[in-house]
Amino acid sequence: MNSAALLLSLCFVGSYSQQLCDHPPSDWCSTWEIAKACKVEQQCIEYLSHKDLQKRDESPVKVELYYESLCGGCRKFVVLQLFPTWLMLNEIMEITLVPYGNAQEKNISGKWEFTCQHGPDECYVNTIEACIMHHVMDIQSYFPIIFCIEISSNVTSALGPCLAAFQPELSVKTVMDCVNGDLGNKLMHENAMKTDSLNPPHDYVPWVVVNGQHNDTLQDRAISALLNLICEMYTGTKPEACSGKGMTPLKRDSVCLN
């Protein structure tokens, strides 16, 4: 029975007991006492159960981004698609950021050493971003910092200004202690394992996984019109932002090949 039918059932049953019920129909299922007084207990159980199932079906769209900090295509995607879409639709989407990309790792005497596609600076900024995520934890707070770094003209020196603008309570020293210490090494190894376990394996970055799935169609849709894709895939009531236009399209060749 759909929600409309359940509401009709409530009204039909309740009409027999209106002389005992001093509450409007909109309140009949608000408390168990009111439901009993209006003699609609069973209908309320069914109605609320249906609403709970609907709520569970309306789960956020999950977007995982596997990227590297100095890849031009990754930066364009973060700046022009992912961050603006998240600003408008963060209540219906969950984002996971994994900075590592096409890097390689090797265990040297018990410590992981990394080689990155765009050189040591990229390994350095990848680790900065991983450490920021670890210390801040809440994406509502750390994503603006990551965006600030990725949009900066000098990515390698953006940490201080971006922290000052978006998370002044987190010190540069705290982040750099992580970057230069065992914690940063551990975080980057974890990102390496996440990236290396992708199925299918990534051929390039940015590599986008939506609701646990990656294929050429999803990738192309995400890269070219992420906002439209999220709006289409979300099963609940669409937010107002879904009635507007999407972000500036990006070309598929804006990637860094593995």
Rank of each mutant, 00 (worst) to 15 (best):
L8V: 14
L8H: 15
S9T: 12
F12N: 10
C21N: 10
H23L: 09
H23C: 12
C29G: 09
S30C: 07
A35Y: 05
K36H: 13
Q42K: 13
E46M: 14
L48D: 11
S49D: 15
H50A: 15
D52P: 03
D57V: 12
V61T: 08
K62M: 10
C71I: 07
G73S: 09
C74E: 02
R75C: 10
R75Q: 13
V79Q: 07
Q81V: 03
P84Y: 06
P84C: 08
W86C: 08
L89R: 03
T96Y: 06
V98A: 06
Y100M: 00
Q104N: 10
N107Q: 13
E113H: 12
F114E: 02
T115H: 06
D121E: 13
Y124H: 14
V125Q: 02
N126W: 05
N126A: 03
H135P: 04
Q140Y: 11
Q140F: 10
E150P: 08
A158I: 04
F166P: 02
G181W: 01
H189A: 11
T195I: 00
W207R: 04
Q213W: 04
T217C: 07
I223C: 00
L227Q: 05
L229I: 02
E232K: 10
T235Q: 13
K245C: 10
D253E: 15
S254K: 11
C256E: 00
L257F: 09
N258W: 09
